[in-house]
Structures are given as structure tokens and as C-alpha cells.
Design a protein around this nucleic acid. Structure first.
Lengths: 212, 212
DNA sequence: GTCAAAACGGGACGGTTGTCCTGTTTTGTA
DNA sequence: TACAAAACAGGACAACCGTCCCGTTTTGAC
């Protein structure tokens, strides 16, 4: 609760840690309440930081938002999507595992805040081109990683007329949209349905070569 | 340009027309800039309406937002999605036509503002339960209409193990997500890819019975 | 130890937001 | 014509927002 342990009012500078606390608080706030609905006043309170410190590390709110996107959102996509998919046996297995993990996490929390990347994308893409570029870069990374994994599947079991890039786009789009519907209905049902549909489609198309 | 034609300063009460102008201006602003980023000051200016008139018709901004969702957004979904799909020969044909129409419209404007329903859904669903209910109702209507059309397809050419509700969910989710990616990249490419993938999947699955 | 730069505390500031209040004008009714 | 209610004008108002400034403390290099 208190930031000054027991002794006198001695200060300990910790620029990196303070920056992390700020970006963490901002990531949590932006992901749940959105960028514009999150005031810097609340962020300072949550992070235990004064106005001077905030202004020193992030001269503008936009700079803080950019740091959230590039540091936390990009990392979140990497951790919850790209790494699990890469580690899975097949792309379909990976996607199924990712959906399952996200669904169980949402059921544990009892509320659907939506995909942080998608939330910020719709809110900020048209407002500022720096935001748009940062967000687009994450989408590209995401889609490219899935396409790469799909190509790895095909190397093991070749299939004709299968467009890995197009399928990767479909996967990212479907997940984003399913999460939007889940947020609108405050229910994981759209995610469950789309996970089943998506994995079924991929498995059918990538194993078509064996049946022919 | 001038709202007072030539004569003196005589006023003509037009409550319904004024309300329409307000909701129109709000729909345009909310769809492009978002709900929170649109100030009532600009809305009054765009609609040519004073503060007193606004407060008379909509006591709060939330009331205006609710009217936009229930009147304009619901109507937009009806006009751009449900009606064209219903009029098409098959669901796949309808979806293809809808995507094509939206894509050409976006290419004409040169900018991607995103799906109004999706934009407002992500921005307002978790903020207010009245917003959430209004938005969810539109999603349900949308998905139900597509599922109904898919069932009509199946009546003409029956197929086993085809879940119309699940496929309708996939269609809505994929479109929403594709539009989100299109907004993030300010390009119609994700829409083009997803349209092709989606129609191909539906056509394959709904004509599978003939090949077996 | 010196000293400049970085790190931080705390609050002032102007601009904007949404809401509300007090009048005035128009409209419908009798 | 009388009159009450609806429709509208116009601005006041407090609350909030993000930014900026000044002073103090800590840090690191020499």
C-alpha cells in the first residue's frame, strides 16, 4: 500500500520499473475500458506514479499508447497465439488449443473484454497513422506466422490448390470477429462455434490430398 | 447553406425532421470517429441544431447513441446484408455480392472506417448494458437471417452434417474480423480474401451431397 | 566532492466535455 | 382568442481531460 517502506522519505529512482508499471496499467486499462475512456488520472493512480514522472517517460498520451501496442499487445499476440501454434503438431491443433485456452480463461473471468489488438485497431486505426502502422505490423506478423505454419503442414502432406496466406487471413479474421461477437453477447459461444468450424475446415482441406 | 431562406426570422417547428438530422449526423460521426471521440458540439454544428433542441429530443448522449444503434445501424445491416442475401439465389451468391458491393464502395471512398456495428460493439458493449443489449440484438438478427437462408439452400439440396447456425456464425464473425483487418491495414485485401474463402467453403459444403 | 543531467513530485493551466437551466416561440386544442 | 404544452434558442455550469511548468532529489561521470 505504502511506497515508502519504513524509514525516512528517501526516494529510489527506478526509471525502468516505473515505466513498466505505467505500461502495465495502461495496457490493462486500454484493453478493458478502451483508449479514450481511460483517463491519465486513473492510470497514474493505478501505477502509483505522479504527473511529473508520467510526463518524463511519456510526453503525450499517444506515446504511452504506442508503447502499449508495441510492447504489450505485440507480446500478447506472440504468447497467446504464435508460440502455441508453432509448438503444436499441426496448425489446426494449435488453433484449437489457442481457442480452448482463451475460452477457459474467459469463463474463469466471467466477462469478455475482447481482443486487445482488435479493440485498439478499431478505436485508433483511423485516428492516427502512427497507431495504424503499429497495429498493422502486429496483424501482419500474426498472419504471416500462421501462414508459415500452414506451409509447414503442407510440406509434410502436400495438397494442391491450398492458399496458405489466404487461409491464415481467414483464421485471423474469424478469430477477431468471433471475439467481437463474444464481447457483444458477453458469451464464449461464438468462439466455440468458430473454433470448431475453423479447425474442421483446415483439417479437411489439408488432408484432402490423402483421400484423392 | 443558410437555414433561413430569405424572409424574416420566422421559425418552423419540425420535431421529426430535426430528430432525423440529429440521428443522421450522429450515425455518421459515430461510424467514422467513434462514440467517445464525437463531441456533441460537433454534432450540433453538423445537424444545424442548438443545445436546447438536442436536450429536448435526447436528454443524454446515451439516448442519442441508442437511437443511432436501433434506428440507423440496424437499418444498415438490413439493407447491406440481410436483404441482398435473401434476394440472392443461394447464400453463397448473396455473400459474394454483399462483399463485392462493400469492397467497391470502400474503393470508391478510398478509406476504410469499418463496420459501424462492429465499431460500436467493441467500444460500447462493456460500458453499458443497454448498449450491449441493443447491439447483441442486431447481431442475433443478422446471424439468424443468414442461418435461415442457409436452411433454405439445404431444402433445395439436402446435405448431411451441415450446421446452418454454426455456418452463419462463421460468416458474421469472418466478415467482422475481415473488416477489422481492412480498417487496420486501410486496404480491402482482407475482405477480398475472406469473401473468396467463405463462399468457396459454403459452396463446397452445401453441394457435398451431390458428389457423395 | 562537483556538477550537469536524468528522474521524479506536485500542481497550475486552458480547453473540452456533457448536462442543465431559463427564456422565447410555435403548435394544438377549445 | 386563450392557454397549456411542446419545440426550440442560447448560454451557464461543473467536471474532466491532457499538457506543461517549476522545484526538488537522485544518479552517474569526472
Amino acid at each position: 500500500m505504502s511506497e515508502r517502506p519504513t524509514s525516512s522519505h528517501r526516494r529510489m529512482n527506478d526509471p525502468e520499473g516505473l515505466r513498466q508499471r505505467l505500461v502495465d496499467a495502461a495496457y490493462a486499462a486500454f484493453s478493458t475500458r478502451g483508449y479514450h475512456s481511460s483517463g491519465l488520472h486513473d492510470l497514474k493512480r493505478d501505477a502509483g506514479v505522479t504527473g511529473g514522472a508520467l510526463a518524463h517517460h511519456f510526453p503525450t498520451k499517444k506515446a504511452l499508447g504506442l508503447a502499449v501496442i508495441q510492447d504489450r499487445v505485440a507480446e500478447a499476440v506472440e504468447l497467446t497465439w504464435i508460440t502455441p501454434v508453432n509448438l503444436a503438431t499441426t496448425t489446426a491443433d494449435g488453433i484449437q488449443a489457442v481457442f480452448a485456452a482463451i475460452i477457459s480463461e474467459l469463463e474463469r473471468k466471467g466477462a469478455v473484454s475482447g481482443c486487445p489488438l482488435n479493440n485498439l485497431a478499431l478505436e485508433l486505426s483511423r485516428e492516427d497513422e502512427d497507431f495504424q502502422a503499429a497495429i498493422e505490423a502486429i496483424f501482419i506478423r500474426w498472419r504471416t506466422a500462421i501462414a508459415e505454419k500452414l506451409r509447414a503442414d503442407l510440406r509434410a502432406a502436400p495438397v494442391r490448390d491450398f492458399d496458405s496466406e489466404a487461409m491464415a487471413t481467414l483464421v485471423v479474421a474469424t478469430y477477431s470477429g468471433a471475439m467481437a461477437m463474444a464481447k457483444a453477447s458477453q458469451s464464449v459461444t461464438p468462439l466455440k462455434i468458430c473454433a470448431k468450424q475453423l479447425t474442421s475446415i483446415i483439417r479437411t482441406q489439408t488432408s484432402l490430398g490423402h483421400e484423392l
